[in-house]
Amino acid sequence: MLRYARLYACFVRFSFSRAMEFRMDFFFRIGMDALWYFVNLAFFWVLYRHTASLGGWGYDQVLVFVGGVFFVDALHMTIFSNNLWWLPITINKGDLDYYLVRPVSSLFFLSLRDFAANSFVNLFMALGVLAWTLAHFPEPLGALPVTLYIAMLFLGLFLYYVLHMLFLIPSFWMHTGGGLREIFYALEPYATRPHGVFRGWVRRILVSLLPFALIMSFPAQALLEDLALPVLAHMAGATAAAFLLMLWLWRRGLRAYVSASS
């Protein structure tokens, strides 16, 4: 475990050195993420000009939810995003060989190697928005529920990573993973919109089979509707199940991998 922690520290150090080499991109990315935050806030601001409630949540409640969305997204962009972008390309070009021969878990290496230093700066911006939305909530939220909310956002982050991987692992069997990746990106808004707006079987799917609603909406629901324990149990169960499925598929994928043009 300590060896992996030391290795990860190396990844982080190299990532910062690399980011400093490409300074313009470093600042472009900070600007891009700030713009994404602005556009998301503007989106809900425009909608709430025409309604007092969206899927059962008022504007202040949605702001807390959006703060959580920014936090999870910034973490995902910092820790996983670059790595997962390259994963299908690495598989299809046969570059996986380099990772399979190393004396560490290939899943660890491929998921965490590229730490996005520029997004790490945005993490502070996202944390600022999250703190602001929590502090400006009209009712007192309490330290314990807020701590639990943050913890659940971390669980949501892990689920986000697992779901993303589940859409990329089929690249082992397909010639290109572009189509599934596009679908994942198209499904992401189901996580970044309050799950209360979804109804019927779509809502049932979003909390079970494709648990996108659990990533960011469930933590906010636990905080805002005082449902911490049942929501936490649901999230933990779904995350564990999705993680086991991912591990199983990853192992099968590695067995199917035939190096170049797999």
């Binding site: 010639h175 572009g178 189509g179 499904l187 808004p189 189901y190 707006v197 979804f198």
Partner: peptide, 20 residues
């Protein structure tokens, strides 16, 4: 890839818009 991204992507995007 083409059919996955075209049909799947379109339905997913329209689905979110519909519920919003």
């Amino acid at each position: 890839d083409f059919w996955l991204s075209s049909i799947g992507g379109f339905l997913a995007q329209l689905g979110v818009a519909y519920f919003i």
